[in-house]
Design a protein around this nucleic acid. Sequence first.
DNA 1: TTTTAAATCAGAATAAAATTCTTCAAATAT
DNA 2: ATATTTGAAGAATTTTATTCTGATTTAAAA
Lengths: 150, 150
Amino acid sequence: MEQIDEIDLQLLNILHDNSKYTVKELAKMVNLSASPVFERIKRLENNGYIKKYIALLDAEKLNRGFIVFCNIKLKQHDRNIGNQFVSDIMKIEEIVECYNISGDYDFLMKVSAKDMKHYQDFVFNKLGSVESIGSTQSTFVMSEIKNLYG
Amino acid sequence: MEQIDEIDLQLLNILHDNSKYTVKELAKMVNLSASPVFERIKRLENNGYIKKYIALLDAEKLNRGFIVFCNIKLKQHDRNIGNQFVSDIMKIEEIVECYNISGDYDFLMKVSAKDMKHYQDFVFNKLGSVESIGSTQSTFVMSEIKNLYG
DNA sequence: TTTTAAATCAGAATAAAATTCTTCAAATAT
DNA sequence: ATATTTGAAGAATTTTATTCTGATTTAAAA
């Protein structure tokens, strides 16, 4: 696999925070001309260092500002139950992240809802119809302190 | 505040997943010509629906593929301790997210490290020197199941 | 219902950016 | 020391973003 150098790393850090800089602007920041910067970025994309480019949206404005971390225990720990669970949660739009974790619970999900009422509805009607779930435990976010992706 | 319609919502969903489409491509997807699509996107940016554009990087390739959720209790709950904690964790690069939460702990942090060794070093040397922390509890991620930002 | 004003669109024109290409210089290998 | 490879700069080209104009629709007012 290709190596990356200090300038590549600078470009990655800049683009991770703001991907709208022009190549010319980036070139000035890393003290190069446009063409090598362009080629470096293409190489970083092709080699998979950059996975994709996305727009970050305002969750509050889109009625998704109420964040909850929801811990899940499965009823049983066989492969079928696990696969069914994964398949089910993939379809639920309020679940924006999900991890298989160590500890007392099996999964940790980040859930994004409009408000407590919406979250309650989500737990009853959406999680409630996922057969594989044994129990849940909700941790409510009171405020976001830091988010390198937000 | 401005209203957004169904086409705006389509554009937001598309750009949230991939912000590299050209205006012409987006126009075809929503059955409009380029200029109204361009104007809609500018309006969504100016009204704050789109916060910014970023590149998503491959954590594994950048030696940050070991994810841990770390729960934190503060020593005391006065404003000074809290402010000091926030100020401290802002400077620690391994902490990619941090939330003030309900429940047994005060904060939930998402930590991104190279491996267990790196995480251990992080807990001892970085968290270890944050005076405001009373106790910590680590939950390790075994695999990522879903991530709308990843 | 008719008229007026305000938005929104399409398509052309322009400006800016991305992308390619050629040449040159530095580093590395022979 | 010479050949080869790599990476950069700058110009040329292509593509895209952005602006502008006129037409059409929508909504509001008369």
